[in-house]
């Protein structure tokens, strides 16, 4: 095995998942290096969300190797442990804690306290309060800090979720369709934010919006029927015959 590859932040080799005979992932292999941002595209049913499920421990692969940071076998861990290791996930549909305030949403996501009894007796420290304010500023929600998350607009919820992801301070972020339902201006802002985040985190972005992917300007992996169809810059994969056939269309 190539140690350079296996020590990458995320290493998937020959991963397969099937649901009642349907192969959602079919011998999927790919690698994300430290500090890299990667965009994943592909038609519906290509296995993008299942891949996220497998990495975050929601679904167990039937076969395959799944390593995080070269040393952690993700197939043996549950969602909470994987999250605590430093893999954060943003869902396709924004999911925030609707009956908590924006501030409490961030507070709950802050890395650190996770066990039952420490949360029971924990008191919010000054340091934590400062971290929260910084994060709120970064996702432009300072003004809405004391509103209930349920009252936010769709775009604000997406940003709040990104803020929660940052609060976890993960070394790898999995972001599923971050700009779905956003206005063009919001899309551009989100791209900027993600690029900024990518400076000190590894990021995997799943997205349908081609102009957004172009804005990100990163390496692209095309998934099709549960395995990698093509990999490379957006220009290169868009020129690939097979990609045009299955996804982009002529």
């Amino acid at each position: 095995m190539n140690t350079e590859l296996t020590s990458a932040v995320l290493y998937l080799d020959d991963v397969s998942v099937s649901f009642d005979g349907f192969k959602a992932l079919n011998a999927l292999s790919f690698v994300v290096k430290h500090g890299e941002m990667r965009a994943i595209i592909g038609p519906n049913g290509a296995g993008k969300t299942t891949m996220m499920d497998v990495i975050t421990g929601k679904t167990r692969p039937d076969v395959g190797t799944l390593l995080f940071d070269g040393s952690h076998d993700l197939t043996k861990l549950d969602e909470a442990s994987i999250a605590q290791l430093g893999i954060g996930r943003k869902f396709q549909r924004p999911t925030v804690f609707e009956s908590h305030t924006v501030r409490d949403n961030i507070l709950l996501s802050l890395s650190g306290v996770r066990s039952v009894f420490t949360t029971l007796f924990s008191v919010t420290t000054k340091d934590e309060r400062e971290r929260i304010e910084r994060l709120l500023e970064r996702v432009k929600l300072s003004d809405a800090a004391d509103r209930l998350a349920a009252e936010l607009s769709h775009g604000q919820k997406q940003w709040l979720e990104i803020g929660m992801l940052l609060a976890q301070d993960p070394s790898l972020l999995l972001v599923d369709e971050p700009v779905a339902g956003m206005t063009d201006a919001e899309t551009v802002q989100t791209a900027t934010l993600l690029r900024e985040i990518a400076k000190d985190h590894s990021v995997v972005v799943v997205e349908h919006d081609m102009s957004f992917v172009r804005d990100l300007d990163v390496m692209v992996t095309v998934l099709h029927e549960g395995s990698v169809l093509a990999e490379g810059s957006l220009d290169r994969v868009s020129a690939d015959e097979r990609v045009i056939d299955v996804y982009l269309g002529r």
């Binding site: 549950d78 709950l108 919010t124």
Partner: peptide
Amino acid sequence: LSRLGKVLIAVRDAESRTRFIGYRV
């Protein structure tokens, strides 16, 4: 009122989200 209470409400509203943040629900 404790932070644990906030986690409980989080579980009530979005259980799997809470898990992906790292809480053992």
